[in-house]
């Protein structure tokens, strides 16, 4: 190989020896801090999120929140998580409830579903949704995931939440 070409190889890798570690360190520093307790999360500032699907029941209301960057034109991407917001309307109405996301539609066994967290008696809570099914149908958000409210005291499913109705 000609000498200049080999020299160019060396120059590129000398540059990469600086750029790659710097880029990696900057990226690692920017990694969002993980929430250590995922079952009881504080309510995050809502300004950067908006509601894309909602179900209103007598005792509670449930919203699906998406970052403001999520629009009808760009409904999905792997850069973000959605959130499910549980708004308790009545005190102590959901004391012993657990919120599940349905992942096995063929089996009613609660152990086969994904536990999102415990519902507190009086508060608004949010749970992160890492994996979700969000589409656009007829120029509207079409959120297809299904959720279950499970009463741990009675050991029974007390409600089924379906946004796609």
């Amino acid at each position: 190989m000609i000498k200049q070409l080999r020299k160019r190889h060396l120059q590129i890798w000398a540059l990469w020896a600086v750029l790659i570690p710097v880029g990696m360190i900057v990226a690692l520093i920017a990694v969002p801090k993980k929430v250590t307790q995922e079952l009881l999360q504080k309510v995050a500032p809502a300004s950067t999120y908006h509601t894309i699907a909602s179900v209103d029941k007598e005792n509670y209301k449930i919203n699906i929140l998406a970052p403001n960057s999520v629009t009808i034109k760009h409904p999905t991407g792997w850069e973000y998580d959605l959130k499910i917001e549980f708004i308790n309307k009545k005190e102590s109405s959901t004391d012993s409830f657990l919120l599940y996301k349905v992942i096995d539609f063929t089996d009613n066994n609660i152990d086969k579903q994904e536990l999102l967290g415990r519902i507190e008696s009086k508060s608004t809570q949010e749970f992160r949704l890492k994996f979700f099914d969000l589409r656009v149908t007829n120029n509207k958000f079409d959120y297809r995931d299904k959720f279950l409210l499970y009463d741990i005291m009675k050991k029974e499913i007390v409600d089924s939440i379906n946004f796609n109705q």
Binding site: S69, I72, K73, H74, P75, T76, G77, E79, L134, R135, V136, N139
Partner: peptide
């Protein structure tokens, strides 16, 4: 999954 050209979406969704 949206109604935008996938390649347009690739560069404009984020």
């Amino acid at each position: 999954l949206g109604n935008v050209n996938p390649f347009v979406s690739l560069f404009t969704s984020n």
